[in-house]
Design a protein around this nucleic acid. Sequence first.
DNA 1: TGTTGGATCAACT
DNA 2: GTTGATCCAACAC
Length: 176
Amino acid sequence: MKLKRSFYLRPTLEVARDLLGKYLVHQTADKIYEGKIIETEAYVGPEDLACHAARGRTKRNEMMFGKGGFAYVYFIYGMYYCLNLTTEKEGFPAAVLIRALDYPKAHGPGRLCREFKITREAHNGLDLTGNVLWVEDRGEKPEIQSGKRIGVAYAGHCADWPWRFFVSDVARPSRP
DNA sequence: TGTTGGATCAACT
DNA sequence: GTTGATCCAACAC
């Protein structure tokens, strides 16, 4: 079943963990994309230097300050989009980055957006309780591991926080 | 108005 | 292990 708003309004680390084993679904005009979520990362609040919201509210990260249960899509390195799902209550900036899906060529945040045709223009700010982009619970309860986040070495001590979650039985979600 | 660097990936050596 | 592709938001003038 489709996850309700209340799922996203809980603490971000719980949401990041619980999203593993769920299915991301993207309905387009001519096709439905769906894949199991196998890797996520949590980005929580102004004290997390790796979080875009650590530098205050801006045009780019505005979605993270809103209510949980919306898509936050941003463009990076001139070529790639990254898909995040916002969490927690309005006014508290937090989101979960979807890093990898169990879907062909979708292991990696940039690649999954390319495969799923997710763009900032079309999907940033989308309501995840709507009927374009959402997450489904199909009753799977995978073994979960956690580790350090990827590509955030600039964030100082925050880079060591074990806020990356992945499904144990996937040998290599997106990185060794 | 100009500069800079990033939550990446793939193709190299 | 390193590098090029390629662009927008943030910040410094």
